[in-house]
Write a protein that binds this DNA or RNA. Structure first.
Length: 206
DNA sequence: ATACAAGAGACCGCCGAGCA
DNA sequence: TGCTCGGCGGTCTCTTGTAT
């Protein structure tokens, strides 16, 4: 089965243990377990569970004894994201998380200022990436455009400036832009369409 | 310099084959 | 029966290319 959109998997994750996060939650609950027990507790395909278990073993999060009993030895709240060879996978959306935090710290910002504020040694955020993220959040009604971009033939332009609407500061988790241009807010567990921007309170905020 | 669209790369969940 | 590995197809994040 193909991967499900984030707004689907996120809804599933709160109801039923499935996928890596669900698997990890059950592992943390059991601490010591064998594979059939884990498979029976996790509502995911057995090979998916086995595959994740193998990666956790390779990465050293769990150990496996001779009698096929696994034990959690490296606990952490969130499910480790691991490649097939057990090496850590890059956190998807870490740039967006950093931009979301930076928006709240900066107050008012241009995409370039946001990129500079959100960039770290661990994850670099380019101005174009920041502009793309800002555009989607603006369309979804998260941001207020406080100064439009200025253009001129042969002149350097000035970037538009934005501000996060206080009513849209929904929580610590960064809204995720989906391929369909919808924005999924993991804080409110709602998906906002680009079209909802005008209905979303642009006028109400002013 | 900016905005937009399209594409690349990484990832996930699952299947199926092969091996012990 | 249990485990590992390679591959498939869709999703997602971010970058690149192009027009203005």
């Amino acid at each position: 089965m193909p991967r499900k959109p984030v707004h689907i998997t996120a809804k599933i994750a709160v109801r039923t243990p499935c996928g890596e996060q669900g698997c990890w939650s059950v592992i943390r609950e059991l601490r010591r377990f064998d594979r059939p027990l884990l498979v029976s507790r996790v509502q995911a395909h057995p090979t998916t569970v086995a595959d994740y278990l193998r990666r956790l073993t390779l990465a050293g999060y769990v150990t496996r004894s001779d009698n096929a009993v696994y034990e959690l030895v490296n606990d952490q709240p969130d499910a480790p994201r691991l490649r097939r060879d057990g090496t850590p996978a890059a956190e998807p959306g870490i740039g967006q998380e950093q931009m979301w935090r930076s928006m709240k710290m900066l107050g008012e910002f241009s995409p370039r200022e946001l990129a500079a504020a959100a960039s770290t040694d661990a994850a670099r955020v380019t101005p174009t990436t920041a502009a793309s993220y800002v555009k989607h959040l603006w369309r979804a009604g998260y941001l207020l455009c406080v100064a439009e971009a200025r253009f001129g033939v042969g002149k350097a332009g000035a970037q538009a400036r934005y501000r996060l609407k206080p009513s849209m500061n929904t929580g610590p988790l960064a809204p995720q832009v989906q391929r369909t241009d919808w924005v999924w807010d993991p804080n409110t567990r709602k998906a906002l369409a680009p079209e909802t921007r005008d209905q979303g309170g642009l006028h109400a905020e002013q």
